[in-house]
């Protein structure tokens, strides 16, 4: 790994100023579990992805670390560790799928320093993107090796140009929980719902979200669930722990006498962005969830466009959606 300069930012404004000053070879770092010991250690770089030279530590910014519950909403600083989220009794009680999704990430050791912001903004796991021999679109190259190569772990929905799947587990839960992101940049702070936070390859193949290089995620706000809200999360992996999602499902919905009123079904591991399965939600509208779950889950087939080797993920998604909907009712 190349050596780098490390700056301890003491405020959000300072971090933004440093990013603006240093330009694209600077990056925000928190736990560094992927940026430092993944991307940088493995020299993942390309024409559109310069090797980081300056890292700006944001764990030294007090307002970016911590969990607050106020005005019926949860706010989690982006530099809060996943372990803190897992340990939070408030989160476990009111937003259990955020807790579960955080606990499904990596290993206890990594969760002790990996952060929520890092998890939401981590780079894809695609083995061509991570591999030194593949100058793919996402690194500024001119090819997607998954199209002709081994694509068993790639996108089944929404891939175009590039067929990564979004790797974040907490993002899947946050989108289902209708959370918002606070973003800081040179012109100040703004709030963005996670509905529009993630961006697909067609918008900009070099990134997975709307953060510009001089912007950073400050915190995440999750609204209090309405009365009669049910929620569940499940993540399927090749290995039981310490692995990324083959497919994950987060469902959050309100119901009355078992009938779907309103809610969200979000899939991870299947699309370049955390994927809100509106076809499934629509098929559930006004229906008895238990009775409609199987049919509704099957609707995912109408939007899936599997590649040569990943058709199995469609079957998995169908099965998991039904299970998650059913388990949320228990």
């Amino acid at each position: 790994m190349k050596s780098f300069e490390l700056y301890d930012a003491t405020s959000v404004q300072e971090a933004v100023a440093l990013l603006s000053k240093f330009g694209p070879t600077s990056k925000v770092v928190a736990g560094g579990s992927d940026l430092v010991t993944g991307i940088m250690k493995d020299w993942v770089r390309g024409k559109g992805m310069p090797y980081p030279e300056k890292l700006i530590d944001i764990t030294t910014i007090p307002e970016m670390v911590g969990i607050k519950v106020a005005n019926n909403a949860l706010t989690v600083g982006a530099a809060t560790t996943l372990s803190s989220i897992v340990d939070s009794a408030d989160i476990k009680k009111t937003w259990p799928i955020l807790s579960q999704s955080a606990e499904s990430v990596a290993s206890p050791l990594i969760r002790n320093f990996a952060t929520l912001g890092g998890n939401i903004n981590q780079r894809p796991r695609c083995w061509f993107f991570r591999g030194e021999n593949f100058a793919c679109y996402k690194k500024g190259g001119d090819f997607c090796f998954a199209v002709t190569g081994d694509n068993r772990y790639h996108a089944i929905i929404g891939g175009e140009l590039c067929y990564i799947v979004h790797p974040s587990d907490t993002a899947t839960a946050l989108l289902a929980l209708n959370a918002k992101a606070t973003i800081a940049g040179p012109s100040g702070q703004r709030e963005v719902p996670f509905d529009t936070y993630f961006t697909g390859p067609r918008e900009d193949v070099l990134r997975e979200n709307l953060l510009k290089h001089d912007e950073l995620l400050v915190n995440v706000t999750v609204p209090q669930p309405a009365a009669n809200t049910r929620m569940a999360f499940f993540k399927l992996k090749d290995r039981q722990v310490y692995d990324f999602a083959l497919c994950s499902v987060a469902a959050v919905f309100t119901e009355e006498n078992g009938v779907w009123k309103d809610g969200r079904v979000v899939l991870g591991g299947v699309s370049p962005v955390p994927y809100r399965a509106k076809v499934v939600e629509e098929a559930l509208a006004g229906k008895n969830i238990k009775q409609a779950a199987k049919d509704a889950a099957g609707r995912i087939r109408t939007v899936a466009r599997p590649m040569s080797l990943n058709g199995y993920k469609v079957d998995i998604a169908v099965g998991l959606i039904e299970r998650v909907l059913t388990s949320a009712l228990v």
């Binding site: 083995w127 591999g131 090749d238 290995r239 039981q240 310490y242």
Partner: peptide, 18 residues
């Protein structure tokens, strides 16, 4: 001839849970 699983994060070995 290129190795797509050159890390223990992609070449998965069993954990105590497996």
């Amino acid at each position: 001839g290129l190795v797509l699983t050159p890390h223990l994060s992609t070449y998965l070995i069993p954990t105590v849970r497996d």
